[in-house]
């Protein structure tokens, strides 16, 4: 049995096997994470409003997300009459590309990483901008005013917040002297970067909340104004792909924050991967906490906050870091 596996690995090549196995693992993490988070979101929402949340389906309502996904899978795929068909179909698939690519470069543990690309950070930042493209496509292709407004807002918001996001990661790259995520984690062996760069961490976290389109920055899908924003016209499985992408994005931004600022998989006693997931889910909980605490910001506040506060402050932070490192 073992021999045959080794033989097969030798025939197709180690790299291919690693990628395939890694992608399967990524899929499992993506699905498992989305199922867990939909449950957790409702549970957290419930308890923050002093309710119980889901409790009927399975123990503590744990099976609720499974029941929901079966329901979504069973729904008819409705295509509205006047949509731009190719774009309309493309959007839900496209939103998954950045999600998968980002997972490839995240180091879950010392060796648990699909591929360590030496420009990993650039890959993440480049592909995460694709999310906004698919939102724009979805909004445009839906032929619906609410979708379009949602998409346009999303673009403005993502452009505004991409800049501080990038600027807050640059000091980390200065300090680690590398673009590879594994090197960044290894550079935090002594002290996590969050202690050197608390301002950068705050800016990064705020900007990534905006990037994931979650409250208080959920203007692209503002339920109370825009029905459901860019995914108004989507139903069934296509809707659930957007949904899945949102929850996966939450995981990703938390994972990146952990990798860059909270020491990644580093931690005593427990295996690295356990540390990694623990830290990530603490940040995810903070995201949920934000959502059930803060009201949505107004659009001008949103843009002002980014252009007038986050960007100048992150520039300043970058300059100071550069100056200190040079000394």
């Amino acid at each position: 049995m073992c021999d045959t596996i080794i033989n097969i690995v030798n025939i197709v090549g180690k790299e291919v096997v690693r990628t395939v196995v890694g992608l399967i693992g990524v899929f499992i993490v993506v699905i498992g994470n989305a199922i867990m988070l939909t449950w957790a979101e409702r549970k957290v929402a419930g308890h923050m409003q002093r309710r119980i949340g889901p409790k009927e389906v399975g123990p503590f309502g744990l099976i609720q997300s499974f029941a929901d996904s079966v329901k979504l899978l069973g729904k008819e795929l409705l295509t509205p009459a006047n949509v731009e068909r190719p774009l309309y179909f493309l959007a839900p698939t496209l939103i998954f590309v950045p999600v998968l690519v980002t997972f490839v470069v995240i180091p879950f543990d010392g060796f648990l990483q699909v591929k360590d690309i030496n420009v990993g950070i650039l890959v993440i930042l480049a592909f995460s901008s694709l999310t906004v493209l698919s939102i724009l496509i979805a909004g445009w292709g839906s032929n619906n005013k609410y979708s379009l407004i949602g998409a346009v807002r999303s673009v403005a918001q993502n452009i505004a917040y991409e800049i501080p996001l990038l600027l807050s990661l640059l000091p980390i790259i200065f300090m680690a002297n590398s673009f590879s995520l594994r090197d960044v984690v290894e550079a935090q062996k002594g002290l996590w970067f969050v202690f050197y760069q608390p301002v950068a961490f705050l800016i990064f976290f705020v900007a990534s909340v905006a990037e994931t389109n979650r409250t208080p920055f959920d203007l692209p899908e503002a339920e109370s104004e825009l029905v459901a924003g860019f995914h108004t016209e989507y139903s069934g499985m296509r809707f659930s792909l957007f949904f899945l992408a949102e929850y996966t994005n939450m995981f990703i931004v938390s994972a990146i924050a952990v990798t860059f600022f909270l020491g990644g998989y580093q931690g005593p006693i427990l295996p690295g991967v356990v540390w990694f997931f623990m830290k990530t889910y603490v940040l995810v909980f903070v995201l949920l906490w934000f959502r059930w605490t803060f009201p949505r910001v107004r659009f001008d506040q949103l843009l002002n906050f980014s252009w007038k506060i986050l960007i100048p402050v992150s520039f300043l932070n970058l300059l100071v870091t550069g100056g200190i490192l040079k000394l």
């Binding site: 957290v44 308890h47 923050m48 002093r50 309710r51 906490w289």
Partner: peptide, 10 residues
Amino acid sequence: TIRAFFSPVV
């Protein structure tokens, strides 16, 4: 909200 989170359900 975090205080509500840890308070008993009403």
